[in-house]
Protein backbone atom coordinates (compact mmCIF):
# COMPACT_ATOMS: atom_id res chain seq x y z
CA UNK A 1 0.00 0.00 0.00
CA UNK A 2 1.33 3.42 -1.04
CA UNK A 3 0.98 6.29 1.45
CA UNK A 4 1.51 9.97 0.60
CA UNK A 5 3.59 11.86 3.13
CA UNK A 6 4.84 15.02 1.40
CA UNK A 7 6.66 16.60 4.25
CA UNK A 8 10.07 18.17 4.71
CA UNK A 9 12.81 15.92 5.99
CA UNK A 10 14.20 17.30 9.21
CA UNK A 11 17.68 16.12 9.69
CA UNK A 12 19.20 15.54 13.11
CA UNK A 13 20.50 19.10 13.27
CA UNK A 14 17.08 20.60 12.48
CA UNK A 15 15.37 18.46 15.11
CA UNK A 16 17.86 19.51 17.78
CA UNK A 17 17.49 23.12 16.62
CA UNK A 18 13.75 22.85 17.26
CA UNK A 19 14.47 21.62 20.78
CA UNK A 20 16.88 24.50 21.38
CA UNK A 21 14.34 26.98 20.07
CA UNK A 22 11.61 25.63 22.31
CA UNK A 23 13.90 26.10 25.32
CA UNK A 24 14.87 29.66 24.29
CA UNK A 25 11.20 30.60 23.85
CA UNK A 26 10.19 29.04 27.14
CA UNK A 27 12.91 30.92 29.00
CA UNK A 28 12.35 34.14 27.05
CA UNK A 29 15.99 34.31 25.99
CA UNK A 30 16.63 35.98 22.63
CA UNK A 31 19.38 34.18 20.68
CA UNK A 32 21.42 35.85 17.96
CA UNK A 33 23.71 33.94 15.56
CA UNK A 34 26.48 36.24 14.26
CA UNK A 35 28.21 35.12 11.07
CA UNK A 36 31.19 36.66 9.24
CA UNK A 37 34.59 35.93 7.70
CA UNK A 38 37.58 35.39 9.98
CA UNK A 39 38.68 38.75 11.37
CA UNK A 40 35.65 40.76 10.16
CA UNK A 41 35.08 41.91 13.71
CA UNK A 42 32.63 39.45 15.27
CA UNK A 43 34.20 39.56 18.73
CA UNK A 44 34.66 43.34 18.55
CA UNK A 45 31.01 43.77 17.53
CA UNK A 46 29.88 41.53 20.37
CA UNK A 47 31.91 43.61 22.85
CA UNK A 48 30.42 46.84 21.49
CA UNK A 49 26.91 45.34 21.64
CA UNK A 50 27.49 44.27 25.24
CA UNK A 51 28.54 47.81 26.14
CA UNK A 52 25.38 49.19 24.57
CA UNK A 53 22.97 46.73 26.17
CA UNK A 54 24.48 45.47 29.43
CA UNK A 55 22.65 47.98 31.63
CA UNK A 56 19.37 46.77 30.30
CA UNK A 57 19.86 43.04 29.72
CA UNK A 58 21.63 40.02 31.14
CA UNK A 59 23.82 38.77 28.34
CA UNK A 60 25.91 35.65 27.70
CA UNK A 61 28.08 34.72 24.74
CA UNK A 62 28.77 31.40 23.03
CA UNK A 63 32.06 31.46 21.11
CA UNK A 64 32.54 29.06 18.23
CA UNK A 65 36.05 28.53 16.95
CA UNK A 66 37.92 25.70 15.31
CA UNK A 67 40.44 25.86 18.17
CA UNK A 68 41.57 28.07 21.10
CA UNK A 69 39.68 30.01 23.75
CA UNK A 70 41.01 33.50 23.14
CA UNK A 71 37.63 34.96 22.15
CA UNK A 72 35.83 33.57 25.22
CA UNK A 73 38.59 35.02 27.39
CA UNK A 74 38.07 38.46 25.85
CA UNK A 75 34.35 38.28 26.66
CA UNK A 76 34.95 36.97 30.20
CA UNK A 77 37.43 39.78 30.81
CA UNK A 78 34.51 42.08 30.04
CA UNK A 79 32.56 40.54 32.92
CA UNK A 80 30.12 38.58 30.77
CA UNK A 81 29.64 34.80 30.95
CA UNK A 82 31.16 33.10 27.91
CA UNK A 83 31.24 29.49 26.79
CA UNK A 84 33.84 28.46 24.23
CA UNK A 85 33.00 25.71 21.77
CA UNK A 86 35.89 24.26 19.82
CA UNK A 87 34.56 22.55 16.73
CA UNK A 88 37.76 20.55 16.27
CA UNK A 89 38.04 21.38 12.59
CA UNK A 90 34.38 21.81 11.63
CA UNK A 91 33.75 25.04 9.76
CA UNK A 92 30.41 25.88 11.41
CA UNK A 93 28.43 25.34 14.62
CA UNK A 94 25.67 22.74 14.90
CA UNK A 95 22.67 22.45 17.21
CA UNK A 96 24.12 19.75 19.45
CA UNK A 97 27.13 21.97 20.24
CA UNK A 98 24.73 24.77 21.21
CA UNK A 99 22.75 22.34 23.34
CA UNK A 100 25.89 21.45 25.29
CA UNK A 101 26.93 25.10 25.61
CA UNK A 102 23.59 26.25 27.04
CA UNK A 103 23.78 23.54 29.68
CA UNK A 104 26.65 25.59 31.12
CA UNK A 105 24.59 28.82 31.25
CA UNK A 106 21.97 30.00 33.74
CA UNK A 107 19.10 30.24 31.27
CA UNK A 108 16.65 31.63 33.85
CA UNK A 109 18.84 34.65 34.45
CA UNK A 110 19.45 35.61 30.81
CA UNK A 111 17.74 37.91 28.28
CA UNK A 112 20.17 37.60 25.38
CA UNK A 113 22.66 35.05 24.09
CA UNK A 114 24.98 36.07 21.28
CA UNK A 115 26.58 33.21 19.35
CA UNK A 116 29.82 33.97 17.50
CA UNK A 117 29.80 31.43 14.69
CA UNK A 118 33.00 30.10 13.14
CA UNK A 119 34.56 32.57 10.70
CA UNK A 120 33.13 31.46 7.33
CA UNK A 121 30.66 32.95 4.83
CA UNK A 122 29.36 29.65 3.50
CA UNK A 123 28.75 26.77 5.90
CA UNK A 124 27.07 28.55 8.84
CA UNK A 125 24.21 29.54 6.52
CA UNK A 126 23.19 25.90 6.14
CA UNK A 127 22.79 25.12 9.82
CA UNK A 128 19.90 26.22 11.92
CA UNK A 129 20.86 26.42 15.60
CA UNK A 130 17.44 27.32 16.98
CA UNK A 131 18.38 31.02 17.01
CA UNK A 132 15.81 33.81 16.65
CA UNK A 133 17.89 35.74 14.13
CA UNK A 134 20.95 35.28 11.97
CA UNK A 135 22.92 38.47 11.37
CA UNK A 136 26.03 38.82 9.22
CA UNK A 137 28.95 41.20 9.42
CA UNK A 138 30.97 42.32 6.43
CA UNK A 139 33.99 44.51 7.08
CA UNK A 140 35.07 47.27 4.71
CA UNK A 141 38.53 45.75 3.87
CA UNK A 142 36.83 42.61 2.49
CA UNK A 143 35.42 44.65 -0.40
CA UNK A 144 31.98 45.64 -1.66
CA UNK A 145 31.84 42.74 -4.14
CA UNK A 146 31.23 40.04 -1.50
CA UNK A 147 27.42 39.89 -1.98
CA UNK A 148 28.06 38.81 -5.59
CA UNK A 149 30.26 35.95 -4.43
CA UNK A 150 28.38 34.83 -1.33
CA UNK A 151 24.73 35.69 -2.06
CA UNK A 152 23.30 33.07 0.26
CA UNK A 153 24.51 34.58 3.51
CA UNK A 154 23.19 38.01 2.51
CA UNK A 155 19.85 36.44 1.65
CA UNK A 156 19.31 34.66 4.93
CA UNK A 157 20.62 37.41 7.25
CA UNK A 158 17.94 39.46 8.98
CA UNK A 159 20.33 42.39 9.30
CA UNK A 160 23.73 43.21 7.81
CA UNK A 161 26.44 45.02 9.77
CA UNK A 162 29.08 46.87 7.75
CA UNK A 163 32.00 46.98 10.17
CA UNK A 164 35.34 48.85 10.17
CA UNK A 165 33.49 51.79 8.68
CA UNK A 166 36.29 54.02 9.99
CA UNK A 167 38.58 52.52 7.31
CA UNK A 168 36.34 53.51 4.39
CA UNK A 169 38.74 56.18 3.10
CA UNK A 170 41.64 53.72 2.90
CA UNK A 171 39.86 51.15 0.71
CA UNK A 172 38.08 51.48 -2.63
CA UNK A 173 34.88 50.22 -1.03
CA UNK A 174 31.84 51.40 -2.99
CA UNK A 175 29.22 51.78 -0.27
CA UNK A 176 26.42 52.75 -2.64
CA UNK A 177 26.93 49.68 -4.79
CA UNK A 178 27.21 47.46 -1.72
CA UNK A 179 23.94 48.72 -0.27
CA UNK A 180 22.12 48.39 -3.55
CA UNK A 181 23.25 44.78 -4.13
CA UNK A 182 22.39 43.82 -0.56
CA UNK A 183 18.93 45.35 -0.98
CA UNK A 184 18.32 43.52 -4.22
CA UNK A 185 19.32 40.21 -2.62
CA UNK A 186 17.34 40.88 0.53
CA UNK A 187 14.65 43.56 0.57
CA UNK A 188 14.07 43.39 4.31
CA UNK A 189 17.50 43.45 5.91
CA UNK A 190 18.68 46.81 7.24
CA UNK A 191 22.39 47.65 6.82
CA UNK A 192 24.12 49.17 9.87
CA UNK A 193 27.48 50.87 9.27
CA UNK A 194 29.54 50.65 12.45
CA UNK A 195 33.08 50.90 13.80
CA UNK A 196 32.97 48.27 16.49
CA UNK A 197 36.29 49.14 18.09
CA UNK A 198 35.37 52.85 18.30
CA UNK A 199 31.75 52.27 19.25
CA UNK A 200 30.51 54.40 16.36
CA UNK A 201 27.16 53.61 14.74
CA UNK A 202 26.47 50.93 17.35
CA UNK A 203 23.36 52.70 18.71
CA UNK A 204 21.16 52.06 15.66
CA UNK A 205 22.18 48.40 15.60
CA UNK A 206 21.57 48.06 19.37
CA UNK A 207 18.14 49.63 18.93
CA UNK A 208 17.21 47.10 16.23
CA UNK A 209 18.31 44.28 18.51
CA UNK A 210 16.44 45.77 21.47
CA UNK A 211 13.23 45.85 19.41
CA UNK A 212 13.67 42.18 18.58
CA UNK A 213 14.37 41.24 22.22
CA UNK A 214 11.32 43.18 23.41
CA UNK A 215 9.14 41.55 20.74
CA UNK A 216 10.12 38.14 22.10
CA UNK A 217 9.45 39.22 25.70
CA UNK A 218 6.01 40.54 24.81
CA UNK A 219 5.29 37.26 23.06
CA UNK A 220 4.85 38.54 19.51
Amino acid sequence: MEIDIKKPILDRNDRLAQDNRALFDEKGVFVLDLMASPGAGKTSTILATIDALRDRYNIAVIEGDIASKVDAEKISAHGIPAVQINTGGACHLESDMIQRAIAALDMDALDLIIIENVGNLVCPTEFNLGEHAKVMILSVPEGHDKPYKYPNIFQIAEAVILNKYDTLSVFDFNEEEFRSVVTSLNHEAPVFAISATKGEGVDAWAEWLTDRIEALKSGS
Partner: peptide, 8 residues
Amino acid sequence: LTIDSIDI
Protein backbone atom coordinates in the same frame (compact mmCIF):
# COMPACT_ATOMS: atom_id res chain seq x y z
CA LEU B 1 14.40 17.88 0.79
CA THR B 2 11.10 16.12 1.27
CA ILE B 3 9.80 12.67 1.95
CA ASP B 4 7.12 12.07 -0.70
CA SER B 5 5.63 8.66 -0.02
CA ILE B 6 6.20 5.22 1.42
CA ASP B 7 5.02 1.79 0.33
CA ILE B 8 4.03 -0.51 3.21
